[in-house]
Nucleic acid binder design. Structure first.
Length: 422
RNA sequence: GGAGAGUUGGCAGAGUGGUCGAUUGCACUAGUCUUGAAAACUAGCGUGCCGCAAGGUACCGAGAGUUCGAAUCUCUCACUCUCCGCCA
């Protein structure tokens, strides 16, 4: 969520930034500020009232010690009204605080100055591109290739679980595992510390990174234990640092982690979701950074470069997009999407999304930085896919297929131990 | 899943109804001393909220309750440890 102090100080600026998302936030922002005013007043009144009650209690203590019992009893009798007032003020404060969080949680992050205004993916800005985005001579969609070589069985997944839960077989499984290993090794080389996080999270974690309350329909929920299957490694990895105060010298913190991701994808259908294009369960290697506010945008660029390096090593043509306000996720201030060109389908596939959340998540998580002089401030959080597996796998199969065999990119051969699928 | 023990500031560990946000030690930070370091000594050293500030207020696993007053008493829950059961 946005910080209250920041909203109060930069009301107009935030309203203008949110317009890039197509949101008119005037009313909600003013509502928030008004409620915060009430909160402050109530806090003051409560503190004063509590102070009074405390004073009387200690006076009664001294009276009793001195043996002046009648006096003490008289004072006791008079405490009723104060006590009642305290309770009322406490209730009022609580409801103001809860109301504020509720309102704040409905306001998305304010886009960065460089974010273009826009409604949909049509308004995204292409920053740069790499490689030849042309259809292959033997253009074949990956679902035909996986079938031909027995790499993935989608129907088998339907039997075991349901649509969107494919079964990887033989060289298909090995290629998948090799990619994970490759991505993790590359992350480690770039200075990220590997973590293997839990694949289920509680509601607090879901709130911390911003999936809850707004996107809870997208996550699988185990009601019995009130736990959610993670939609991305971002959730458990970033929440490692929930409620933590980090010494400034320990920043930046860089983690890389592999995890399966589970998404309900309610409402998706058609050829957009065919094959590996959109699944309910998929694998992803995620990179996460915590940084000082003044360093976060430089870190974001380096993260994008890291992902680009991966794609170049895999020899996949790609382009980098700066998302417009309307296409950006709820919690992001700036997002770069990386798309690879899928030659078998003749379309771009999103394989990575790298974002700076500034203090939006840190504020929800109470993730703070402590400098040497003892001053505390919220950290900036960033994350990105490096990379999401299924569409990479699809692109590798489609882009390296010559009608006879699939050639494995050189960087993966040390992992797969085979050079072709035929 | 069953039985028992526990949960206090970065760590260790006091405190069982009244001025306790909490003794003390270690760690940490600054300073004195020293050629430098160590040692010793001095001071500082949790987090949130309200307030320009002085200051006020809240937090001793979480929530509720008893009381004029709760870290201390009662209840519920969570977690940790030990033993038993089950199990990859």
């Amino acid at each position: 969520m946005l910080q209250l102090a920041h909203i109060r100080e930069n009301r107009q600026e935030i309203i203008e930034a949110l317009q890039k998302r197509g949101i008119n936030a005037v009313e909600i922002i003013d509502q928030i500020i008004a409620l915060d005013d009430h909160r402050k007043q109530t806090q003051s009144a409560l503190d004063q009232s509590l102070s009074e009650a405390k004073k009387i209690a200690s006076e009664i203590g001294s009276m009793m010690k001195a043996g002046r019992m009648e006096e003490a009893n008289a004072a006791k009798a008079a405490t009723g009204t104060i006590k009642k007032r305290n309770q009322e003020l406490e209730q009022e404060l609580k409801s103001h605080e809860a109301g504020l969080i509720e309102l704040l949680a409905t306001v998305p992050n304010a886009p960065h100055a460089s974010v273009p205004a826009g409604k949909s993916s049509d308004d995204n800005e292409t920053i740069r591109a790499w490689g030849e985005a042309e259809n292959a001579e033997h253009a074949t969609p990956h679902w035909d290739i996986t079938k031909k070589y027995g790499l993935i069985d989608f129907e088998l997944g339907v039997k075991i679980t349901g649509a969107g839960f494919p079964v990887y077989l033989g060289k298909g499984a090995k290629l998948q595992r090799s990619l994970i290993q490759f991505f993790l090794d590359q992350g480690e080389e770039a200075g990220y510390t590997e973590v293997i996080p839990p694949h289920m999270v509680n509601a607090e974690s879901g709130f911390g990174t911003g999936q809850l309350p707004d996107k809870d329909g997208q996550m699988y929920h185990a009601k019995e234990d009130d736990l959610y299957l993670i939609p991305t490694g971002e959730v458990p990895i970033t929440n490692i640092y929930r409620d933590v105060i980090i010494a400034e010298d320990d920043l930046p913190i860089k983690n890389v982690g592999y995890s399966p991701c589970f998404r309900r994808e309610a409402g998706s259908y058609g050829k957009e979701v065919r094959g590996l294009n959109r699944l309910h369960q998929f694998d992803k290697v995620e990179i996460v950074q915590l940084s000082k506010p003044e360093d976060s945008y430089a870190a974001l660029e380096v993260m994008v470069e890291h992902v680009e390096q991966l794609l170049q090593k895999l020899e996949l043509p790609y382009r980098v997009l700066r998302l417009c306000g309307g296409d950006m996720g709820f919690t992001a201030a700036l997002t770069y999407d990386l798309e690879v060109y899928s030659k078998g389908q003749g379309r771009w596939l999103e394989v990575s999304s790298v974002s700076n959340f500034e203090t939006y998540q840190a504020n929800r998580m109470k993730l703070r930085i402590k400098s040497k002089d003892g001053k505390k401030r919220l950290a900036h959080t960033l994350n990105g896919s490096a990379l999401a597996l299924p569409r990479i796998l699809a692109a590798i199969l489609e882009n390296n297929y010559d009608g006879e065999a699939v050639r494995i990119p050189a960087c993966l051969v040390p992992y797969t131990k085979f050079e072709t699928i035929e």
